[in-house]
C-alpha cells in the first residue's frame, strides 16, 4: 500500500504512529545497507547484525532526520558510523588480499581453463577487484555506482570533503581497471599455457 510513496511521506507516516510503514523503508534499502556493511566487515552474519542495528537506530532517531538531504544519505551515514564504531570496539583491521591471492582465487569448477575463463562472469571479476581495494575506496565505489550517491553525498556519509572523494574515486577507478585487466591477462596466459601443454 505504501510502496508507491516517497521516503519523506513514509517517514511522516511512521512519525505519526503508523510504525508498520517502516517496513517499506526496510525493504527499499535493506540490500544497500547490507552490501555497505559487507564492505566494512566482510562477514555475512556480522553484516546482517550490523544492518539490523542500523535500521533500529534509524527508527529510534527518525525524528532527527531533517529532510534536507536524501533519506538514503542519512541512512548510509548511520551505516558508516555503526560499522566504524563496531570495528573500533573490536579493533578489527582491514583484510586485504595480496596480489597473488587475488590471482589464485578459485573460479568455477570446470577443469578446462577456457571453459573456466568463459564461466567466470564479469560480475565475479568486478567483485574480486572491489575486494582488493582499500575499504574506504570500496565504499566510495559502492556508494557511487550501486547506491547512486553523488560525490558530495558520499563526502557527507564518510566525513570527507567532496574534492577528497573525487580524487579517491578517480584513484579507485584506476586501481579497479588495473586489477580487472591484470586478472584477465592472467587467465588468458594460464589458458594459453595449458592448451599448448595439451597439444
Amino acid at each position: 500500500m505504501h510502496n508507491a510513496l516517497d521516503d519523506i511521506a513514509i517517514i511522516n507516516l511512521v512519525l505519526q504512529g503508523q510504525h508498520t510503514a517502516y517496513a517499506v523503508l526496510i525493504t527499499r534499502y535493506q540490500q544497500y545497507v547490507y552490501t555497505l556493511a559487507m564492505r566494512h566487515v566482510n562477514n555475512r552474519e556480522l553484516a546482517e547484525e550490523l544492518s539490523q542495528d542500523v535500521f533500529l537506530k534509524a527508527y529510534r532517531f527518525l525524528a532527527d532526520y531533517k529532510g534536507t538531504g536524501k533519506f538514503s544519505t542519512w541512512l548510509y551515514t548511520i551505516v558508516h558510523t555503526t560499522c566504524l564504531s563496531h570495528l573500533r570496539k573490536n579493533n578489527d583491521t582491514a583484510i586485504l588480499l595480496t596480489e597473488d591471492q587475488i590471482l589464485s582465487l578459485p573460479n568455477q569448477q570446470s577443469a578446462d581453463p577456457i571453459d573456466r575463463m568463459e564461466q567466470q562472469t564479469q560480475k565475479q571479476l568486478v567483485e574480486i577487484a572491489i575486494k582488493q581495494l582499500p575499504k574506504i575506496d570500496a565504499q566510495i565505489i559502492t556508494l557511487f555506482y550501486l547506491a547512486e550517491q553523488s560525490v558530495e553525498e558520499i563526502g557527507i556519509i564518510l566525513g570527507l570533503t567532496a574534492s577528497n572523494v573525487k580524487v579517491r574515486l578517480y584513484r579507485a577507478r584506476q586501481k579497479l581497471k588495473e586489477i580487472m585487466e591484470q586478472k584477465c591477462m592472467h587467465e588468458l596466459s594460464e589458458g594459453y599455457k595449458l592448451t599448448t601443454d595439451n597439444h
Binding site: 517502516y22 526496510i26 540490500q31 544497500y32 559487507m38 535500521f55 533500529l56 560480475k123
Partner: peptide, 27 residues
Amino acid sequence: NMAIDQPSMRFAKNIMDSVTSTTIAPA
C-alpha cells in the same frame, strides 16, 4: 556488474519485531 548482497529472508521481519518494542526518540 556490481553485485548487491542479499540479507536473510527474515531480515525485515526481525527488525519489525524489534521496532514494535522501540519508541521513537524526540528530535
